[in-house]
Amino acid sequence: MSMHFIPQLALKGDFARISYFAVDQHIRSKGLGRKIEEYCTNLAIEKNCDRIEVHCHSRRTDAHRFYMRQGYSESPKYFIKMLA
């Protein structure tokens, strides 16, 4: 997992962003992803973040179910500008 801690200058409440999170397909469903996510949640709390965000492509339905089980909710507004 790669996670960034982002301070807010104009708004109250810093946040954490998961930029990459993968568990090898051969060891999935053994609780490792849950433990990693919980560890990172605790880090975010220690750094006084009030939320964690993660962008997860619409085709990654298994990942969506994982995040929902971990307490995430969907926030569908997301824009991207391709530069290349």
Rank of each mutant, 00 (worst) to 15 (best):
E46D: 06
H26W: 04
G71E: 08
I27D: 01
R60A: 12
F15K: 12
M3P: 05
Y67H: 10
M82G: 12
R60M: 13
D14R: 10
N48H: 13
F5A: 12
D14Q: 11
L32R: 05
K12Y: 11
G33C: 04
Y67T: 07
S58L: 11
I27N: 04
L32K: 03
I27P: 03
D62Y: 00
H26Q: 07
S75Q: 13
R34F: 02
E74D: 15
C40W: 07
F66M: 04
R65L: 00
Y78F: 14
I45M: 08
E46R: 07
E74M: 15
K12W: 08
T41N: 07
S19F: 03
T41Y: 06
N48V: 09
Y67N: 11
F79C: 10
K47T: 07
H4K: 12
M82D: 14
C40R: 08
K81M: 06
K81E: 05
A22I: 07
D62G: 00
L32P: 00
G13N: 10
L43H: 02
I18Q: 05
N42G: 12
R60K: 13
D50E: 12
K81N: 05
C56L: 14
P76C: 15
C56Y: 05
I36F: 03
R60Y: 09
G31K: 04
G13T: 11
E38M: 14
S2L: 14
A84W: 12
L32F: 04
L9I: 10
S58E: 12
D24M: 00
S19M: 08
K81F: 03
D14C: 14
Q70V: 01
N42F: 11
R60F: 09
E37C: 07
Y78N: 14
F15G: 08
S19I: 09
E37L: 09
G33Q: 04
M68A: 03
I36N: 01
K47Q: 09
F66P: 01
